[in-house]
Amino acid sequence: MRIQQLSELLDYVANCHLDMEKLYKRLDRNADSSRVKMMLTYFQQHQRHIYETLESYLEDAPSRILNTWYKDITFEDFSKRCNETSLPANMKEDEVLELHLDLENRLIALLEKTANSSPTDEIKSALMDLVRVAQTQQKRLVHSTIRMDDI
C-alpha cells in the first residue's frame, strides 16, 4: 500500500484495526478454550474502540495536518495478512497475545515511520502522540490479559 496523505494513512490504520477485529472474531469461532475465547472477545472490543477513536480523530483534526503529503510511505497489505493468519483450534493465550502484539507493533511502526518523515514538528508531534497513546493502550491490554490469567 502506498500512502500519500496523512488522512489516508490514519484512515488506513483505522481500517487495519477493523481487520484485526475480524481476525479475532474468526479465531474466536474456531477456538476450543473458553479462556482464549474470552481473550479474543476482549481484543475484538479493543480493536473496535481504537477504530472509533481514530475515526473521531480524523473528524476533529485540523485539515492542514490531515492534508499533509508524503513521499515513499509504503506498507504491507495488512488486510491480506489478517485474512491469511490462522491459529489452530487448540491455540493458547500466549499465542494469541503474541499474534496481537506483532500486528499492533507493525501499525505502531508505520505511525513512527511516518512521524519521522513528517515535514513539520507540529505534524511529527501529533503522530508521536498517537504512537504514545497506542503504546500505552498496548501496555494496558497486556496487563489486562495477564490479569485474566489470574482469574
Rank of each mutant, 00 (worst) to 15 (best):
M20H: 01
Y24H: 15
K25T: 09
R26V: 13
L27A: 07
R29K: 15
R29Y: 12
R29M: 10
N30G: 15
R35D: 15
M39I: 14
L40Y: 05
L40W: 01
T41Y: 11
T41G: 15
Y42R: 13
Y42S: 14
F43C: 02
F43D: 10
Q44M: 03
Q45W: 02
H46I: 00
Q47T: 09
R48M: 06
H49E: 11
I50N: 01
I50M: 02
Y51I: 03
T53F: 08
L58V: 03
A61Q: 10
R64C: 12
R64N: 14
R64G: 06
I65N: 01
I65S: 01
N67A: 08
T68N: 01
W69E: 13
Y70G: 00
K71Q: 10
D72C: 06
I73W: 05
T74G: 12
K80S: 10
N83T: 08
T85S: 05
L87D: 01
N90A: 11
M91C: 11
K92I: 03
K92H: 14
K92C: 10
D94N: 14
E95F: 05
L97M: 09
E98S: 12
L99C: 09
L101G: 02
D102L: 11
R106D: 11
R106G: 04
L107V: 04
I108H: 00
A109L: 07
A109T: 03
A109K: 08
L110T: 07
E112W: 04
T114P: 07
A115D: 04
A115P: 04
S117Q: 10
S117I: 12
S117R: 10
P119K: 11
T120K: 08
D121I: 10
E122I: 08
K124F: 05
A126G: 01
A126C: 08
L127D: 00
L127P: 07
M128N: 10
